[in-house]
Design a protein around this nucleic acid. Structure first.
Length: 472
RNA sequence: GGCGCGGUAGCCAAGUGGUAAGGCCGGGGACUGCAAAUCCUCUAUUCGGCGGUUCGAUUCCGCCCCGCGCCUCCA
């Protein structure tokens, strides 16, 4: 078992990861809310946790990985109604889309993928325990709320002072004005069970507190504990989830069980697109399909997402994806030279296998998941190996790294789309080929210029040529 | 205001108290009639600014400037 260290949001220290049950390393990642196709920012998070999972596998920590699907909330309900679909039919559609996108980006499937609406009873049971223990109460509106004041450790993850949170909230003019209308005892209290509203339509379930639906945070507490146990090794998600979502999960779970919930917390920092926070109005809001339509290869997109450290903002740019494709090509040459198996990105070499010249890359990857440093090491050691005859230990080492990063050692055979050139272009190209065969290079060059002007590039081979549309 | 992160070559991005990884782009060269591809090679006396600690700081401390995140349901 190789040592893996990771920064912990809770303690703000780097800590070694070990399975607390001595067998499997159990971890949970907050998955997508399936109300539409996920965007590239979502995928940064999911790709990073995929790499994390892979590193654990390759290190021999035998991970058990759970990632949920959130299929009930304001957005899913609203969008399903707008499309005239049941919540289930609607969320099924985008769950499938999410799976397809994950496959495209080479993500390994989690060991468990619980859905919120499949675990309503577990959530109700958990809320009932919180009611019994005095951590929850039913408000005047019929909704059930968590009493934050009942959990003294509230704020320990995000390092917020609960008192300050209260003060702050009540200090805002809006909160003051509305204070009397609150159904909660304190503004920091959050909903565990939401009483049915007309806007929810059919999307309601029976509970001891009347019809309604679960609050957002409770699903992750209920499902993670069901799938992984009351105490498990690590919980992760995007940085935005640290507060309040994860803080609330801790309050709910530890309030109910009296035991530690997740032992280690990991948060992935959001990316920037073209230097700005993604937003539809800025036109830098990309789904995976948007990028594929622009002609970018999925593995280049993945490579770029992995080329930044997970605790560092990453600036995702279109130019960057192009550059990523160039870098990938080099790595693949190295993989071919070392005869790494073609499925190296999908099949892990045995844990403990030799890493040879790639030991340093493997080491930095296990040191707080330093993917950019690992890629750097890959190139550094790799270029030296290119001129030597391949060694088995290096082959194993590169295999391990490519698996951990999820980089396929072989690219798609036809990276450039098979675009058929129009007849007129073909004719021009044929004339140029003839001119070239006649060694009339002046005419050949003139024809090449014409083709270039028309947006086509001629690539010569020994006994023929191919036409490619010029890049964007 | 509270908590936190960052400012390293044209771009992306590691890193260390001991004198700046790597990738992309670009330049030069080889090869090719040209182009593409490929190969070789070059590109930060310097790490936002100013002080301090130190034999020595990009790395530690202080202040300042700039950018960013979270502060109630956005990965």
């Amino acid at each position: 078992m190789d040592k893996v260290e990771l920064h912990d949001t809770l303690t703000r220290e780097k800590r070694e990861l070990t399975p607390s049950d001595g067998k499997q390393f159990r971890f949970y990642v907050c998955g997508p809310t399936v109300y539409g196709p996920a965007h590239i920012g979502n995928f940064r998070t999911f790709v990073l946790f995929d790499v994390f999972y892979r590193v654990l596998v390759a290190a021999g920590l035998q991970p058990r990985f759970a990632r949920n699907i959130t299929d009930v909330d304001d957005k899913t309900i609203k969008a399903s109604q707008e499309q005239g679909l049941t919540l289930r039919a609607f969320t099924d559609r985008y769950t499938e889309k999410f799976h397809a996108d994950c496959d495209t980006l080479g993500l390994l499937r989690p060991d468990a993928e619980p859905r919120a609406t499949d675990h309503i009873q577990e959530q109700i049971d958990l809320i009932a325990v919180l009611m019994e223990k005095g951590h929850a109460y039913q408000g005047a509106d019929g909704s059930v709320y968590y009493r934050v004041a009942s959990f003294p450790e509230y704020g320990k993850l995000s390092h917020f002072d609960p008192a300050a949170l209260q003060t702050q909230a009540t200090n805002s003019a809006e909160a003051l004005n509305l204070a009397d209308e609150y159904d909660r005892d304190a503004v920091a209290d959050f909903a565990l069970w939401k009483a049915h509203k007309p806007a929810d339509g059919e999307n309601a379930w029976d509970s001891p507190w009347g019809r309604g639906r679960p609050g957002w945070h409770i699903e992750c507490s209920a499902m993670s504990m069901k799938v992984l146990g009351q105490t498990f090794d690590l919980h992760g998600g995007g940085e935005d989830l640290c507060f309040p979502h994860h803080e609330n999960e801790i309050a709910q779970s530890e309030g109910a069980t009296g035991k530690p919930f997740a032992l280690h917390w990991m948060h992935a920092v959001h990316l920037l697109v073209e230097g700005k926070k993604m937003s539809k109005s800025l036109g830098n809001f990309f789904t995976l399909d948007d990028l594929l339509e622009k002609g970018f290869a999925p593995d280049a997109i993945r490579y770029l997402l992995v080329s930044g450290h997970y605790r560092q903002q990453l600036n995702f740019t279109l130019k960057g994806v192009e550059g990523a494709a160039s870098g990938l090509k080099k790595l693949r040459k190295l993989a071919a030279h070392l005869r790494v198996p073609e499925d190296a990105d999908r099949t892990a070499p045995p844990p403990g296998s030799p890493t040879g010249a790639f030991a340093s890359a493997w080491a930095v990857l296990r040191d707080d998941l330093n993917t950019p440093a690992a890629i750097g090491e890959l190139f550094k050691t790799g270029s030296a190996l290119l001129s030597e005859s391949p060694r088995e230990e290096d082959r194993m080492g590169l295999h391990k790294l490519l698996f951990a990063l999820g980089i396929p050692p072989v690219g798609p055979e036809n990276t450039t789309a098979e675009t058929d050139a129009p007849e007129a272009i073909r004719a021009l190209a044929d004339r140029r080929w003839q001119a070239k065969k006649d060694r009339d290079f002046t005419a050949a060059d003139a024809l090449r210029a014409e083709l270039t002007a028309a947006g086509w590039q001629v690539l010569d081979a020994k006994d023929g040529y191919t036409l490619e549309p010029l890049a964007r």
